[in-house]
Design a protein around this nucleic acid. Sequence first.
DNA 1: TTTTAATGTGCGTGTTTTTGCGTGTTATTG
DNA 2: CAATAACACGCAAAAACACGCACATTAAAA
Lengths: 248, 248
Amino acid sequence: MLKKERHDFIMRQINLHNRVLTSDLVQLLNVSEDTIRRDLQELVDENLLYKVHGGALSKSYHSSFDDSTVYARESKIAIGKKAIQLIKDGMVVLTGGGTTILELVKLLPQGLSATFFTISPLVAVELAKYNNIEVILIGGLFSKNSQVTYGGQVITQLSEIKADLCLMGTSAIHPDEGLTDTYWEINQLKKAMLACAKRTAVLCISEKLDIALRLRVCPIESISYLITELDNAHESLFRYKEKELNIL
Amino acid sequence: MLKKERHDFIMRQINLHNRVLTSDLVQLLNVSEDTIRRDLQELVDENLLYKVHGGALSKSYHSSFDDSTVYARESKIAIGKKAIQLIKDGMVVLTGGGTTILELVKLLPQGLSATFFTISPLVAVELAKYNNIEVILIGGLFSKNSQVTYGGQVITQLSEIKADLCLMGTSAIHPDEGLTDTYWEINQLKKAMLACAKRTAVLCISEKLDIALRLRVCPIESISYLITELDNAHESLFRYKEKELNIL
DNA sequence: TTTTAATGTGCGTGTTTTTGCGTGTTATTG
DNA sequence: CAATAACACGCAAAAACACGCACATTAAAA
């Protein structure tokens, strides 16, 4: 492999992930650490990236760091960190859309090898940054509001999938009413997602606890994991602990 | 073997693989290293390729699919402006992926009422910003390189669609060889897209003109419109005008 | 046909680039 | 503060390179 190609590869990784580890590059490119270090130094000289102990960072990363337009981003990252513990190598995972799922995906470990089905284009794009993850985007009508695909075709395709784990954002959850939603189409969609996964994890920031909306998706017992940003011992979770439900 | 023949051979290799190694050429052409080096230097002088230690790279080779800095963005906007003239109210349009298409979508008139099928999640998200456009995302395996869905499922779904117009980005176009591509899957995909649309418009920045890659998608006659950023009278387009092809 | 000039090609020589390794130093972590 | 990992520096071998020169081939001029 030519040096220029290596540089291109590194810059590609940087643009994709905003960071690279020296050790990863050594493995991926099959050259010595010194070579990688020299490459990184040369790219620094060209003002293309920012070198740190252990690897390098994207130059634009720091300047555009504050994409804090995401509401309650800190909470969602906390939820994401908990949720990734459920994902193991070799798993087939089904995900919905929403900013919480998106934050989770950004936190996945680089080496993870798994298959992801998703109804969210944005999640698909983010997942595609991981070399060892196979991404299948479930197609259909595209919802302008929730930025996911929906409709009959999606549900048909979901019925053909067998997933180990389903990761689902939530509109509302209530200890007695279970999972609920406002829109018929989204409701149908979530039912279909639940049906095709062995276990389902609901990702839910605390302010959506104890709310019931118009349409019932499923009772609380159909859910395997409830993941919030709260400490496990937090009082808001008492009512949920009484059910057969793992709280993370 | 004549020098010109060697040069043609080298350029062919470059267009095919985006790179050549000096050592490979020495073997393939059975001449001395010096001759190859001189050849490469001459091709550099003609501005046809990019020389590096160990070989040479294609000039139009840009590996990074970097969304922050779209390559040749001005040209792509110019192409987009021309292409939207083809889109009328009520149409069913099929689009591929790529930055050119993405720029086009951003230029669509707000009031446009149409149905768009697309294999690109990013295009879908962008299209969703228009109230009167119905967006159907065609799902399937998601390609990390080209950021579109592909594979058997996509092709099956495409076969069920009847579109008025297909908007397609391009890897390479050549007056004799037609539309060509490097990857089998993308090649199959483009064939399927062509098959389901009444007319096809190829969006192509000028530096991708007159290049032939490994796999043939279709002859030039199968295309209805060729859209570049160049003026209609530009000499680069002469060879294309001879064919039955509308140049915009 | 012969001469002359121009161009193309290969080889020898010396230079530069690239790369991996050994050594010792600096950061990071528990 | 000690163990580990990451780092910087210099060195040496190998590869790639540039340059000049000689020889071959070709083509036009004499």
